[in-house]
Nucleic acid binder design. Sequence first.
DNA 1: GTGATTTCCTTTCCGAATGAAAATAGATAC
DNA 2: GTATCTATTTTCATTCGGAAAGGAAATCAC
Lengths: 142, 142
Amino acid sequence: MGQTLLDEIDLLILRQLMQDSTLSHKEIGRAVHMTGQAVGARIRRLRELGVITGYSIGWDPEKLGLNVHALITVFLNSGSAHQTFLQFVASEEEIEEAYRVSGEGCYWMRVRTESPERLNALLDRLVKYGNYKLSLAIGQVK
Amino acid sequence: MGQTLLDEIDLLILRQLMQDSTLSHKEIGRAVHMTGQAVGARIRRLRELGVITGYSIGWDPEKLGLNVHALITVFLNSGSAHQTFLQFVASEEEIEEAYRVSGEGCYWMRVRTESPERLNALLDRLVKYGNYKLSLAIGQVK
DNA sequence: GTGATTTCCTTTCCGAATGAAAATAGATAC
DNA sequence: GTATCTATTTTCATTCGGAAAGGAAATCAC
């Protein structure tokens, strides 16, 4: 594929931005031996190519009161339409990630809620679409 | 807990930054009816409180050639030390997330590799620590 | 009620970063 | 050698971000 689209310098810039996107172009330039403007041009290109899809912040879920963290494997009912399930996923703010999977189950997702009661309520809404298997995350390793 | 630490305006600012951390303080200020400087002071406070933990970019894994996406449940050997497993996780760049779980298995993790061969090699290294169950992600829903 | 204190916001100001345009260097084809 | 194309540097105007000073509102002691 388009592997020649990105050179080593692009990858260096990306790695730096992944760690800290507030680095100035000039600071990044020091690491890759370029002026800030050249770095800026490359970053603009990475955005236009769709390699960089956006800028965001990292945040502490516990500081926001999200104390419950669960991993859920979803086994969709055979009659349940995937489309309506996708709408469900999109509408539930407590679902942080969700993937269609091949292997065990139909979907896998990770959720955070502020309390066991909220998790319980979410599972009640989820069970309309199918069965599930749940594990609680008791620590983030990475 | 410290729920009174964050007011509605702080949450609004956080939500905006989660969507796009390149918004200027002034732009955010328009949404919350404050000057850019006031927004900047609140953001600084959110950083000092540890609510905001960092700034990063979103990126397209396929544009970087990471075509294989897998979800792995790890069942650690009873003799295997957790400490050495954590070092393993930290050293493997292809592991993007990992959590200690209570429920099915000991750890859960999500990995991306550029090829099935690389996934195979990663699993070879993983199997020293225990057993695993693997699902392939075939689409990101959220 | 008065005054002091604290907190938070606005105003003002300056250094630094960003983004655009023009000039320059390096590589390639012919 | 000449033309051409791409990527970088240089230069410049605009904007942003952070610090300091001043002011409004809430709290508290008395």
